[in-house]
Nucleic acid binder design. Structure first.
Lengths: 333, 333
DNA sequence: GACGGGGTTGCAAGCGTTTACTGAATTTTT
DNA sequence: AAAAATTCAGTAAACGCTTGCAACCCCGTC
């Protein structure tokens, strides 16, 4: 004897009204006499009725669920964004289907399809590189999509981020101002626009403005991970650089730890600025000076933007650029 | 002119078969002649048909979606579990609805209800304390539930974790062996069974076996956060403790950083063992010795267990206890 | 006291699939 | 070669809810 799930019919019967009426009170439709509403509400409460969201979704063509594609929840950068996303999603009564992609375009396409099959009302994409396949899916689908913390040269979909060019330029300038003639740029793959186009450009601009020549051997392309940083420091040091901009916090901590392990004093002998201002920057010793992009807010704003799109409200701008700061800590003079 | 979404009917018509047949091929039902299957598949491909998961869910009463309640994605401990969960979920064709609860029982109940309304096939709960409200919802619902990385004295639902008593006992013993007469235990709220019952018990057992008296003033109850650790170190030091067991990695890093900031040498003057072996333990300097609970695996196994429950397979044990280790690093002698 | 209307409520048609059940076609038995 | 068993495919009834439309009730009006 399974406990029979109770439906809108059961409520209707018990309350002596039609299911349409029950549906109306459940949905807050004003066309219900207060007395009736009260009666129905009581029955709902008594029967512990809980509307079946799947049936609702089928009938209304809205699932109040959005898909979120994330490279890796375990990465603070993305989990911070995710937290912002989830909080405003909750605020607007949406739920989030979270799917890890490992930045693997095949998985991304795969995930994108199951998400669309599940009829999500919207989609938030995080990741540093939008492959052609993914881009194709984006333009084919008419589901609203917003990029969070990602840049995309062709602005097909919504997106929220900061001005990475300006941020890196400012950070680099700062390092130059404290006397560093050779500043290294250490980032993830240059194929990712955020690195290969934006950060690199900001870096070059700062150099140019300071009258310094651009030296390719000071640009290090690696994986954005702690271990990559740890392993790369020696080379960075060998290049003659006395300071570095890191494109990722874990990467920066790796660099920092390697410096410490090698007996290099930070910031005295080597200065370091990182990019994401996650908790890690505070936890490191010395604490890391960082470009402060408001991760949580980026996620939050992205989700907010998405709600507007799902609501078909007018959007003033499909891409929102949030402000950034540079938080000075102990890894710079 | 909106692009009309195409349904199973469209496919059926184009392929000159009934929708039932299309449904069969989509679901891999063997009762379809190969030739027919091929024909249908071609049409599906040509029309770019994608089965509507919501309709499927309604008809089949399965959503291939599981709910995951997490205190905070931003916390490495939980995000590591989440990653394990998502990976095996994906492996078994499930998706995950992720909801942050902030360990707030009101939010938890709230979330639990929307998750159940969405007809998730199963539920994974993370959190250190199961409030009575939540427990009540658990026993009322007939949806399979598994706790990941959480302990619950009354074993109503499935759960996957390690033997926290033994782990802390071993860690404490280790600290005692290296000569510490006064070992502090620094954890989150003692109201959480994992702290107030398990860890504390393990701690006491180690003390007892070493013939040391239990001293309440060496037990510190705080919030499991970096800042809490940072602020608490002075008190810990004042208590006379020369070593500590921390119940959380961020907390431990806080303690460690405060020690460094105060000029206390770790491990020479103060030894520290933490509990979760997240990436943080490697990133800290000195690196943190830690109880090594296999977070990813706990998540993975929890999800695996859940799939079995959803499948109504026989379960040998509702609660599985994974092994643990103690990874020695630089914060202990 | 018949009439016009707004406020309420019920009816019933979907929403896009799954899945008994049935029936026809084909193959296997005997 | 007829009977029995299989295979393959179609019919139609759910699944639980939303929603346009129609019907009804109750007032205030004239």
């Amino acid at each position: 004897m399974e406990k029979q799930t109770i439906t809108i019919y059961d409520v209707a019967r018990e309350a002596n009204v039609s299911m349409a009426t029950v549906s109306r009170v459940v949905n807050g439709n004003p066309n219900v006499k207060p007395a009736t509403r009260k009666k129905v509400l009581e029955v709902i409460d008594r029967l512990d009725y809980r509307p079946n969201a799947v049936a609702r979704g089928l009938a209304s063509k809205k699932t109040t669920t959005v898909g979120v594609i994330i490279p890796d929840v375990t990465n603070m950068f993305f989990s911070s964004l995710a937290r912002g996303i989830d909080d405003v999603a909750t605020m607007y009564k949406y739920n989030i289907i979270l799917a890890n992609s490992d930045e693997n375009s095949q998985k991304e396409v795969q995930v994108l399809n199951t998400l669309l099959a599940k009829q999500v009302d919207g989609l938030i994409y995080m990741g540093h590189e939008i492959s052609d396949n993914v881009r194709a899916e984006f333009s084919r689908s008419k589901t609203p999509i917003v990029l969070a913390g990602s840049v995309d040269p062709d602005e097909q979909v919504g997106s929220v981020n900061i001005d990475y060019v300006a941020a890196v330029e400012e950070a680099t300038a700062r390092l130059i101002k404290t006397g560093n003639k050779q500043v290294a740029l250490v980032t993830g793959p240059l194929t990712q626009p955020i690195n290969g186009e934006y950060r690199l450009q900001g870096y070059k601009q700062a150099l140019a403005k300071a009258g310094l020549a651009y030296d390719e051997s000071l640009v290090f392309e690696t994986e954005a991970s702690y271990h990559a940083g740890l392993g790369l420091f020696k080379q960075v040091q060998k290049s003659g650089a006395t300071a570095a901009i890191a494109g990722d916090d874990e990467l920066a901590v790796g660099l920092l730890d390697a410096a410490i392990d090698a007996g290099v004093k930070v910031p005295t002998d080597f200065e370091l600025i990182t990019s994401n201002n996650t908790k890690l920057t505070e936890m490191a010793r010395p604490q890391l000076t960082s470009i402060d992009q408001p991760l949580y807010d980026i996620g939050a704003v992205a989700m907010r933007l998405l709600t507007k799109m799902m609501n078909k409200e007018d959007i003033d701008a499909k891409t929102v650029r949030l402000g950034f700061d540079i938080t000075a800590r102990q890894s710079t003079k």
